[in-house]
């Protein structure tokens, strides 16, 4: 996704929440009919394809061509979904979960440790250099480095394994994660670090006992952002795996379409099924997800 360049924002939520209380409506009294209408228009642009995909996935293949595409089937069927699940999608789902969890957890832990070191050791030249290196990673389209990544994965004898997807995913996630986490760790009052030191705590203890709890929202945010990016990733699985057993969901979706392209309801059932997990998460943790997406971007 487009995560290449960022500017920091100091805790955006605070300011907006504050303003939320005082200003029930902008632009004052008059109702904004034009705006509302345009808003509804965009609503249609967003929902019509989604709605069409959903209802079509519930239609039987035979009657599908004859029916009105925007009217739900009077006799909805789950046959398409059964077919998708029988095409090994459970395995692809598990692969996606393994790759996402396997990459996000280390990516966030390592980024957090690095961010902590960068903030606490800002006076050390090494750490400033490391920080500069990570920042450079933000300005470079990392996808352009996939050919050497492919070579390295082959040399490590990892080609066509899930680990082959995990390692570069971690590396690609690091720059933005470190950036966001450093911004948040910087906001932890210095006195708290000092008092930890007086109590005799080492850096390792301070890292986990003080910095981590205090920046938990940021950690969750970063984890969500990375999870979404990796879950939806397509290029790395495309070039670093080969056998059907190693497919992740987006890749499986693509090959499924290649196979059953003419069976539109089945293809759409696959689309709906693979997006369902993320949409369920969206329903429950919308705030977190959205703030996760814009962490680090702003003014």
């Amino acid at each position: 996704m487009t995560t290449t360049l960022t500017k920091p924002r100091r805790r955006p939520q605070k300011a907006t929440q504050h303003e939320r209380q005082r200003h029930p409506r902008r632009a004052g009294g008059r109702r904004n009919w034009g705006g509302g209408l345009a808003g509804l228009l965009w609503l249609a642009v967003v929902t019509v394809p989604l709605y069409w995909a959903l209802i079509t996935s519930l239609k039987a293949r035979s009657g599908y061509y004859a029916s009105n595409p925007l009217v739900p089937s009077s006799d909805p069927t789950l046959d398409n979904y059964r077919m998708v699940i029988e095409s090994d999608f459970v395995r692809y789902f598990v692969n996606s979960v393994v790759v996402t969890a396997g990459a996000v957890v280390p990516a966030v832990v390592f980024s957090f440790m690095a961010a902590y070191a960068i903030v606490r050791g800002w006076r050390m030249r090494v750490l400033r250099a490391i920080n500069g290196l990570f920042l450079m990673g933000l300005a470079i389209p990392l996808q352009a480095t996939v050919i050497p990544v492919y070579l390295i994965i082959i040399k490590l004898h990892l080609y066509d394994s899930l680990l082959a997807l995990i390692l570069p995913s971690i590396a690609f996630a690091i720059p933005l994660s470190v950036l966001v986490l450093t911004n948040f760790i910087r906001d932890v009052p210095k006195e708290l670090f000092d008092s930890m030191r007086v109590d005799g705590a080492g850096e390792w203890t301070t890292l986990w006992r003080l910095a981590a709890p205090l920046t938990r929202p940021a950690i969750i945010t970063v984890a969500i952002f990375n999870a979404l990016t990796i879950w939806n990733g397509f290029l790395l699985p495309l070039i670093l795996t080969q056998s059907p057993e190693r497919r992740t969901l987006p890749l499986a979706l693509w090959t499924f379409q290649g196979q059953y392209g003419v069976n539109v309801p089945a293809v759409l059932a696959a689309v709906v099924l693979t997006t369902l997990p993320v949409l369920v998460l969206y329903a429950f943790g919308r705030r977190q997800l959205l703030s996760g997406l814009t962490a680090g971007f702003s003014r």
Partner: peptide
């Protein structure tokens, strides 16, 4: 200790980016 905390992220980033 601090530079060592940055080491895992650094190694992965250098290795794969």
């Amino acid at each position: 200790v601090l530079p060592w905390l940055a080491a895992p992220a650094l190694v992965l980033f250098v290795g794969f980016a």
